[in-house]
Design a protein around this nucleic acid. Structure first.
Lengths: 138, 138
DNA sequence: AACTGATTTAGAACAATTCTTGATCTCATT
DNA sequence: AATGAGATCAAGAATTGTTCTAAATCAGTT
Protein backbone atom coordinates (compact mmCIF):
# COMPACT_ATOMS: atom_id res chain seq x y z
CA UNK A 1 0.00 0.00 0.00
CA UNK A 2 1.48 3.29 -1.17
CA UNK A 3 0.04 6.69 -0.40
CA UNK A 4 0.20 9.34 -3.08
CA UNK A 5 2.55 12.24 -2.45
CA UNK A 6 -0.56 14.38 -2.57
CA UNK A 7 -1.78 12.69 0.57
CA UNK A 8 1.47 12.52 2.45
CA UNK A 9 1.84 16.23 1.87
CA UNK A 10 -1.62 16.82 3.22
CA UNK A 11 -0.69 14.85 6.31
CA UNK A 12 2.58 16.68 6.87
CA UNK A 13 0.89 20.03 6.42
CA UNK A 14 -1.58 19.25 9.21
CA UNK A 15 1.15 18.11 11.55
CA UNK A 16 -0.36 14.69 12.06
CA UNK A 17 2.12 11.92 12.53
CA UNK A 18 1.83 9.13 9.98
CA UNK A 19 1.83 6.01 12.09
CA UNK A 20 1.48 2.49 10.81
CA UNK A 21 -2.07 2.35 12.16
CA UNK A 22 -3.19 5.58 10.55
CA UNK A 23 -1.55 4.63 7.30
CA UNK A 24 -3.43 1.35 7.25
CA UNK A 25 -6.75 2.94 8.13
CA UNK A 26 -6.36 5.45 5.33
CA UNK A 27 -5.04 2.80 2.97
CA UNK A 28 -7.98 0.49 3.59
CA UNK A 29 -10.34 3.41 3.16
CA UNK A 30 -8.78 4.28 -0.18
CA UNK A 31 -8.71 0.70 -1.34
CA UNK A 32 -12.38 -0.16 -1.19
CA UNK A 33 -14.55 2.90 -1.41
CA UNK A 34 -17.74 1.49 0.01
CA UNK A 35 -18.12 3.84 2.96
CA UNK A 36 -17.36 1.39 5.75
CA UNK A 37 -18.27 1.96 9.38
CA UNK A 38 -15.63 2.04 12.11
CA UNK A 39 -16.46 -1.55 12.95
CA UNK A 40 -16.04 -2.69 9.37
CA UNK A 41 -12.75 -0.83 9.10
CA UNK A 42 -11.63 -2.52 12.29
CA UNK A 43 -12.12 -5.94 10.74
CA UNK A 44 -10.35 -5.00 7.52
CA UNK A 45 -7.40 -3.23 9.10
CA UNK A 46 -6.93 -6.06 11.56
CA UNK A 47 -5.94 -8.30 8.68
CA UNK A 48 -2.85 -6.13 8.21
CA UNK A 49 -2.26 -5.06 11.81
CA UNK A 50 -3.67 -7.87 13.94
CA UNK A 51 -2.99 -6.11 17.21
CA UNK A 52 -4.93 -2.96 16.37
CA UNK A 53 -7.79 -2.05 18.66
CA UNK A 54 -11.14 -0.53 17.86
CA UNK A 55 -10.23 2.52 19.89
CA UNK A 56 -7.29 3.09 17.58
CA UNK A 57 -9.57 2.91 14.58
CA UNK A 58 -11.65 5.67 16.15
CA UNK A 59 -8.56 7.67 17.10
CA UNK A 60 -7.07 7.35 13.63
CA UNK A 61 -10.31 8.30 11.97
CA UNK A 62 -10.58 11.33 14.20
CA UNK A 63 -7.09 12.44 13.22
CA UNK A 64 -7.77 11.86 9.53
CA UNK A 65 -11.07 13.68 9.67
CA UNK A 66 -9.46 16.56 11.55
CA UNK A 67 -6.81 17.01 8.91
CA UNK A 68 -9.37 16.81 6.16
CA UNK A 69 -8.32 13.56 4.52
CA UNK A 70 -11.42 11.66 5.45
CA UNK A 71 -15.06 12.60 5.63
CA UNK A 72 -17.86 11.32 7.81
CA UNK A 73 -21.12 10.18 6.28
CA UNK A 74 -24.26 10.20 8.35
CA UNK A 75 -27.38 8.40 7.23
CA UNK A 76 -30.14 8.76 9.77
CA UNK A 77 -28.72 7.72 13.11
CA UNK A 78 -27.00 4.62 11.84
CA UNK A 79 -23.32 4.07 12.55
CA UNK A 80 -21.11 6.76 11.07
CA UNK A 81 -19.53 5.79 7.78
CA UNK A 82 -16.25 7.09 6.47
CA UNK A 83 -14.99 7.96 3.05
CA UNK A 84 -11.76 9.17 1.56
CA UNK A 85 -13.37 10.97 -1.36
CA UNK A 86 -12.22 14.53 -0.90
CA UNK A 87 -14.41 15.98 -3.62
CA UNK A 88 -17.33 17.97 -2.33
CA UNK A 89 -20.11 15.44 -2.59
CA UNK A 90 -23.18 14.01 -0.96
CA UNK A 91 -24.52 10.52 -0.47
CA UNK A 92 -27.28 8.33 -1.72
CA UNK A 93 -28.38 5.43 0.44
CA UNK A 94 -30.15 2.56 -1.28
CA UNK A 95 -33.07 1.27 0.78
CA UNK A 96 -32.91 -2.09 -0.93
CA UNK A 97 -29.29 -3.18 -0.95
CA UNK A 98 -27.95 -0.75 1.66
CA UNK A 99 -25.09 0.56 -0.43
CA UNK A 100 -24.01 4.15 -0.21
CA UNK A 101 -23.15 5.95 -3.44
CA UNK A 102 -21.35 9.22 -3.83
CA UNK A 103 -23.25 11.81 -5.81
CA UNK A 104 -22.27 15.26 -6.89
CA UNK A 105 -23.41 17.93 -4.50
CA UNK A 106 -26.18 20.30 -5.53
CA UNK A 107 -25.36 23.85 -6.46
CA UNK A 108 -24.91 26.09 -3.46
CA UNK A 109 -27.37 28.55 -4.87
CA UNK A 110 -30.19 26.09 -4.46
CA UNK A 111 -30.56 26.75 -0.73
CA UNK A 112 -32.91 29.66 -0.73
CA UNK A 113 -32.56 30.64 2.89
CA UNK A 114 -34.05 33.65 4.65
CA UNK A 115 -31.51 36.46 5.07
CA UNK A 116 -29.05 36.14 7.93
CA UNK A 117 -28.33 32.45 7.68
CA UNK A 118 -24.69 31.68 6.95
CA UNK A 119 -24.08 28.13 5.74
CA UNK A 120 -20.72 26.58 6.54
CA UNK A 121 -21.58 22.97 5.85
CA UNK A 122 -24.28 21.25 3.86
CA UNK A 123 -25.11 17.66 4.52
CA UNK A 124 -27.33 16.06 1.93
CA UNK A 125 -28.36 12.48 2.10
CA UNK A 126 -30.79 11.02 -0.33
CA UNK A 127 -32.57 7.73 -0.06
CA UNK A 128 -34.29 5.55 -2.55
CA UNK A 129 -33.31 2.92 -5.05
CA UNK A 130 -29.92 2.73 -6.72
CA UNK A 131 -29.73 2.01 -10.45
CA UNK A 132 -29.22 -1.71 -9.83
CA UNK A 133 -32.15 -2.11 -7.48
CA UNK A 134 -34.54 0.19 -9.34
CA UNK A 135 -33.96 -1.93 -12.41
CA UNK A 136 -34.49 -5.26 -10.67
CA UNK A 137 -37.55 -4.31 -8.67
CA UNK A 138 -39.59 -3.42 -11.75
CA UNK B 1 -54.83 21.14 24.66
CA UNK B 2 -57.06 20.59 21.65
CA UNK B 3 -55.99 18.86 18.48
CA UNK B 4 -57.27 20.20 15.20
CA UNK B 5 -59.78 18.06 13.36
CA UNK B 6 -57.20 17.92 10.62
CA UNK B 7 -54.94 15.99 12.91
CA UNK B 8 -57.49 13.75 14.51
CA UNK B 9 -58.60 12.78 11.03
CA UNK B 10 -55.04 11.97 10.10
CA UNK B 11 -54.81 9.76 13.15
CA UNK B 12 -58.05 7.96 12.49
CA UNK B 13 -57.12 7.40 8.85
CA UNK B 14 -53.91 5.63 9.87
CA UNK B 15 -55.69 3.45 12.37
CA UNK B 16 -53.60 4.60 15.28
CA UNK B 17 -55.42 4.85 18.55
CA UNK B 18 -55.37 8.26 20.17
CA UNK B 19 -54.32 7.55 23.72
CA UNK B 20 -53.72 10.13 26.42
CA UNK B 21 -49.98 9.58 26.12
CA UNK B 22 -49.84 10.01 22.36
CA UNK B 23 -52.09 13.03 22.54
CA UNK B 24 -49.77 14.66 25.04
CA UNK B 25 -46.65 13.84 23.08
CA UNK B 26 -48.14 15.35 19.96
CA UNK B 27 -49.58 18.27 21.89
CA UNK B 28 -46.25 19.13 23.47
CA UNK B 29 -44.57 18.82 20.10
CA UNK B 30 -47.07 21.22 18.56
CA UNK B 31 -46.86 23.65 21.45
CA UNK B 32 -43.18 24.50 21.38
CA UNK B 33 -41.67 23.93 17.99
CA UNK B 34 -38.04 23.75 18.97
CA UNK B 35 -37.29 20.23 17.73
CA UNK B 36 -36.90 18.50 21.09
CA UNK B 37 -35.19 15.15 21.57
CA UNK B 38 -37.02 12.17 23.04
CA UNK B 39 -35.44 12.94 26.40
CA UNK B 40 -36.57 16.53 26.35
CA UNK B 41 -40.06 15.48 25.35
CA UNK B 42 -40.07 13.03 28.24
CA UNK B 43 -39.43 15.84 30.72
CA UNK B 44 -42.10 18.05 29.19
CA UNK B 45 -44.79 15.44 28.85
CA UNK B 46 -44.16 14.19 32.36
CA UNK B 47 -45.50 17.48 33.68
CA UNK B 48 -48.90 16.53 32.29
CA UNK B 49 -48.70 12.75 32.66
CA UNK B 50 -46.36 12.14 35.60
CA UNK B 51 -46.46 8.37 35.25
CA UNK B 52 -45.33 8.27 31.64
CA UNK B 53 -42.16 6.35 30.88
CA UNK B 54 -39.41 7.13 28.42
CA UNK B 55 -40.21 3.94 26.56
CA UNK B 56 -43.71 5.25 25.97
CA UNK B 57 -42.29 8.48 24.58
CA UNK B 58 -40.35 6.40 22.09
CA UNK B 59 -43.35 4.22 21.33
CA UNK B 60 -45.62 7.20 20.84
CA UNK B 61 -43.12 8.95 18.62
CA UNK B 62 -42.78 5.82 16.55
CA UNK B 63 -46.52 5.65 16.08
CA UNK B 64 -46.75 9.33 15.21
CA UNK B 65 -43.85 9.12 12.77
CA UNK B 66 -45.35 6.02 11.17
CA UNK B 67 -48.64 7.74 10.54
CA UNK B 68 -46.89 10.79 9.17
CA UNK B 69 -47.81 13.33 11.83
CA UNK B 70 -44.29 13.78 13.13
CA UNK B 71 -40.94 13.92 11.42
CA UNK B 72 -37.50 12.96 12.63
CA UNK B 73 -34.62 15.37 12.35
CA UNK B 74 -31.09 14.04 12.24
CA UNK B 75 -28.11 16.30 12.75
CA UNK B 76 -24.91 14.32 12.56
CA UNK B 77 -25.24 11.44 14.97
CA UNK B 78 -26.67 13.45 17.82
CA UNK B 79 -29.91 12.38 19.48
CA UNK B 80 -32.82 12.31 17.07
CA UNK B 81 -35.02 15.40 17.23
CA UNK B 82 -38.69 15.48 16.43
CA UNK B 83 -40.94 18.03 14.79
CA UNK B 84 -44.59 18.31 13.98
CA UNK B 85 -44.10 20.54 10.96
CA UNK B 86 -45.69 18.55 8.17
CA UNK B 87 -44.59 20.85 5.39
CA UNK B 88 -41.80 19.42 3.28
CA UNK B 89 -38.80 21.11 4.79
CA UNK B 90 -35.21 20.72 5.87
CA UNK B 91 -33.23 21.89 8.85
CA UNK B 92 -30.56 24.37 9.71
CA UNK B 93 -28.45 23.71 12.79
CA UNK B 94 -26.74 26.72 14.34
CA UNK B 95 -23.21 25.86 15.49
CA UNK B 96 -23.25 28.71 17.99
CA UNK B 97 -26.52 28.50 19.86
CA UNK B 98 -27.52 24.97 18.91
CA UNK B 99 -31.02 25.84 17.74
CA UNK B 100 -32.58 24.05 14.83
CA UNK B 101 -34.51 26.12 12.32
CA UNK B 102 -36.90 24.89 9.68
CA UNK B 103 -36.04 25.98 6.18
CA UNK B 104 -37.82 25.43 2.92
CA UNK B 105 -36.57 22.45 1.03
CA UNK B 106 -34.62 22.93 -2.20
CA UNK B 107 -36.25 22.19 -5.52
CA UNK B 108 -36.28 18.51 -6.40
CA UNK B 109 -34.73 19.25 -9.74
CA UNK B 110 -31.52 20.35 -8.09
CA UNK B 111 -30.34 16.81 -7.47
CA UNK B 112 -28.62 16.05 -10.71
CA UNK B 113 -28.19 12.33 -10.27
CA UNK B 114 -26.86 9.83 -12.75
CA UNK B 115 -29.66 7.91 -14.49
CA UNK B 116 -31.23 5.04 -12.59
CA UNK B 117 -31.33 6.59 -9.14
CA UNK B 118 -34.85 6.96 -7.78
CA UNK B 119 -35.10 9.34 -4.85
CA UNK B 120 -37.82 8.67 -2.32
CA UNK B 121 -36.55 10.83 0.49
CA UNK B 122 -34.18 13.77 0.66
CA UNK B 123 -32.60 14.69 3.93
CA UNK B 124 -30.88 18.05 3.92
CA UNK B 125 -29.24 19.47 6.97
CA UNK B 126 -27.30 22.66 6.85
CA UNK B 127 -24.99 24.00 9.49
CA UNK B 128 -23.63 27.42 10.17
CA UNK B 129 -24.77 30.54 11.93
CA UNK B 130 -28.40 31.51 12.38
CA UNK B 131 -29.43 35.15 11.81
CA UNK B 132 -29.11 35.95 15.50
CA UNK B 133 -25.65 34.49 15.94
CA UNK B 134 -24.24 35.68 12.61
CA UNK B 135 -25.25 39.20 13.63
CA UNK B 136 -23.74 39.02 17.12
CA UNK B 137 -20.49 37.35 16.19
CA UNK B 138 -19.45 40.16 13.85
C1' DA C 1 20.64 6.28 26.76
C1' DA C 2 17.18 9.23 29.07
C1' DC C 3 13.25 12.38 28.56
C1' DT C 4 9.00 14.18 26.75
C1' DG C 5 4.96 13.95 24.65
C1' DA C 6 2.15 11.49 21.36
C1' DT C 7 0.05 7.15 20.35
C1' DT C 8 -1.78 2.64 21.18
C1' DT C 9 -4.32 -0.78 23.66
C1' DA C 10 -7.89 -2.97 26.47
C1' DG C 11 -11.49 -2.45 28.82
C1' DA C 12 -14.75 0.42 31.40
C1' DA C 13 -18.13 3.93 30.88
C1' DC C 14 -21.64 6.30 28.44
C1' DA C 15 -25.78 7.87 25.87
C1' DA C 16 -29.44 6.97 22.89
C1' DT C 17 -32.36 3.66 21.68
C1' DT C 18 -34.64 -0.86 21.51
C1' DC C 19 -36.31 -4.95 23.63
C1' DT C 20 -38.79 -7.76 27.11
C1' DT C 21 -42.14 -8.79 30.31
C1' DG C 22 -45.98 -8.39 32.84
C1' DA C 23 -49.67 -5.14 33.94
C1' DT C 24 -53.30 -2.23 32.25
C1' DC C 25 -56.40 -0.35 29.15
C1' DT C 26 -59.86 -0.28 25.05
C1' DC C 27 -63.05 -1.84 22.30
C1' DA C 28 -66.23 -5.21 20.44
C1' DT C 29 -69.24 -8.73 21.72
C1' DT C 30 -72.26 -10.65 24.66
C1' DA D 1 -71.96 -4.98 33.27
C1' DA D 2 -68.84 -9.07 32.28
C1' DT D 3 -65.56 -11.31 28.96
C1' DG D 4 -61.95 -11.89 25.83
C1' DA D 5 -58.57 -10.31 22.41
C1' DG D 6 -55.41 -7.29 21.24
C1' DA D 7 -53.23 -2.86 21.75
C1' DT D 8 -50.70 -0.04 24.80
C1' DC D 9 -48.01 1.11 28.78
C1' DA D 10 -44.29 1.03 32.39
C1' DA D 11 -39.96 -0.38 34.27
C1' DG D 12 -35.95 -1.94 33.70
C1' DA D 13 -32.61 -4.87 31.18
C1' DA D 14 -30.12 -5.19 26.98
C1' DT D 15 -27.92 -3.45 22.83
C1' DT D 16 -25.25 -0.49 19.94
C1' DG D 17 -22.07 2.87 18.60
C1' DT D 18 -18.92 5.75 20.56
C1' DT D 19 -15.91 8.00 23.97
C1' DC D 20 -13.09 7.91 28.03
C1' DT D 21 -9.33 6.17 31.16
C1' DA D 22 -5.14 4.42 32.49
C1' DA D 23 -1.23 2.04 31.69
C1' DA D 24 2.10 0.49 28.23
C1' DT D 25 4.67 1.61 24.12
C1' DC D 26 6.67 4.43 20.67
C1' DA D 27 9.11 8.46 18.12
C1' DG D 28 11.83 12.10 18.07
C1' DT D 29 14.95 15.21 20.80
C1' DT D 30 18.42 16.33 24.06
Amino acid sequence: MKLSSDITQHLAASGIRLTKQREQVLGVLLQKRDHPTAGELFLRVRRHVPSISLATIYNSLEALVDCGLVKQVHVDRAATRFCANLMNHSHFYCNHCGTVSDISVPRDSSWNLPPGFVVTQADVSLRGACPNCSKNSL
